[in-house]
């Protein structure tokens, strides 16, 4: 699940910033890309794509730093899979 989520999130970020070279561990805030518009788009993208609702207490900068941390967030919020 998270491997797939990671790739999808990376694709989304790369599509928004085609000029940048971004990998799954890179801190997108440190790269200076994230404004509040993009943050909102990221939240909407994650909620829609992975069918999760991100509660207010998970809306922390550390959860959105990289494709890795976002995929972990998706894993945490997704209903357990059998």
């Amino acid at each position: 699940m998270s491997g797939n989520a990671k790739e999808q999130i990376l694709d989304f970020v790369r599509a928004r910033y085609p000029q940048a070279e971004i990998d799954e561990t890179q801190d997108i805030f440190a790269l200076g890309f994230v404004n509040s518009l993009f943050a909102m788009e990221l939240v909407m993208y994650i909620e829609k794509t992975f069918e999760v609702t991100i509660p207010n207490d998970e809306l922390k900068i550390d959860n959105f730093r990289s494709a890795n941390t976002m995929a972990e967030l998706v894993d945490r919020l997704s209903p357990a899979r059998v």
Binding site: F29, V34, S36, A39, M40, V43, N56, L59, I61
Partner: peptide, 17 residues
């Protein structure tokens, strides 16, 4: 209302949207 910290900007962005 809503999250504090960096995501507070989202309250503004979403509401203005």
């Amino acid at each position: 209302l809503g999250p504090s910290g960096f995501t507070a900007g989202m309250v503004l962005t979403g509401t203005l949207d």
